[in-house]
């Protein structure tokens, strides 16, 4: 029972990071219809940038803020240079441009920082585990989860109460109508990439604190895909729920299934789940079912 609860709590906390990155993914998809396969490499860039800042003596909170600012700049630049011409092109072009971007980011990050594993030194979070009842939680998970929750609330408030967030919502709902009401859709596209860079960068930095920083961080970009499919591509609450569910699933598999099926089942489990889930509910829990006509 204790093992089960521990696994569950860890799953929820790791799932929080997945949820954050999944949110960034869904924002891009809702605003511009781009299916982004470069998310993992965006987390890689964000994680390396924040590591670099932290190693040069900047306190971690400031690191996070600076990563956000650099993320905004990178997002705008990426959108303007690579994606501006391709909005509304066939699915394959849009997906492959993100694949090209992912090659580019991955190659650049590895070229600059090298393939060896980096750690945050001195450790950002305290080492002693926190005891809640019979549970003991590693503080890295706990603080990461708090950061994630804070960021999620901030983003929700941004979408709901600011002018920019509302214009993004309008574009996601109906692009033509938003254009006719004077919303700058180009701004919205750039903003959505910026938000994705922010969420993935922070998610990457937090995960790097947990696991150490190397190329495997970009696996986050793949785990996000089952999460968004589970919640439905169009749904922001769906992305958050999906992220947490995938986190729980991954940890549960790691605890209970690995002994029967040794090897890398923990990382593959979300994909097996994805294939089975899609057979029964291809549009996710809250996604829109698209009706096609000739």
């Amino acid at each position: 029972m204790e093992l089960f609860l521990m696994t569950l709590v860890t799953g929820i906390m790791v799932g929080g990071i997945y949820a954050l990155v999944a949110l960034g993914w869904v924002v891009i998809y809702k605003c511009s219809g781009v299916l982004n396969l470069a998310m993992g490499e965006m987390t890689l860039l964000g994680a390396y940038i924040s590591w670099n800042l932290y190693q040069s003596g900047v306190p971690f909170i400031l690191c996070v803020l600076l990563t956000m600012i650099i993320g905004v700049i990178l997002g705008i630049v990426t959108e303007r240079i690579f994606l501006d011409r391709l909005i509304g092109q066939p699915l394959l072009s849009v997906i492959m441009v993100t694949v090209g971007l992912s090659f580019f980011y991955r190659g650049t990050a590895m070229f600059i920082w090298g393939p060896s594993t980096k750690t945050f030194h001195p450790p950002v979070f305290p080492q002693e585990s926190i005891h809640v009842g019979m549970l003991s939680i590693t503080p890295v998970f706990f603080w990461s989860f708090l950061v994630v929750i804070a960021l999620l609330i901030a983003l929700m408030a941004f979408f709901k109460y600011t002018r920019w967030g509302l214009s993004m919502q309008a574009t996601a709902d109906d692009e033509t109508a938003a254009l006719s009401l004077g919303v700058s859709v180009r701004f919205v596209y750039a903003a959505s990439w910026s938000i994705a860079f922010i969420t993935s960068g922070i998610g990457g930095a937090l995960l790097a604190n947990i696991n150490g920083l190397n190329i495997t961080i970009s696996h986050l970009g793949l785990v996000v895909l089952p999460a968004v499919i589970f919640g439905g591509l169009n749904s922001i609450p769906g992305a958050i729920v999906g992220g947490i569910v995938i986190g729980i699933l991954e940890n549960m598999t790691g605890t209970y299934v690995t002994q029967f099926v040794p090897g890398g089942i923990k990382t593959i489990a979300p994909f097996i789940f994805l294939v089975i889930f899609m057979m029964f509910r291809p549009y996710g829990l809250w996604g829109w079912e698209r009706i096609e006509r000739v």
């Binding site: 690579f82 441009v97 090209g100 090659f103 991955r106 190659g107 090298g114």
Partner: peptide, 19 residues
């Protein structure tokens, strides 16, 4: 790190061809 350089260049080439 030539492999990484190659990956980056191919990424740029794919983007350039699409554009």
């Amino acid at each position: 790190s030539f492999t990484f350089l190659k990956t980056a260049v191919f990424g740029l080439i794919i983007c350039a061809f699409l554009n």
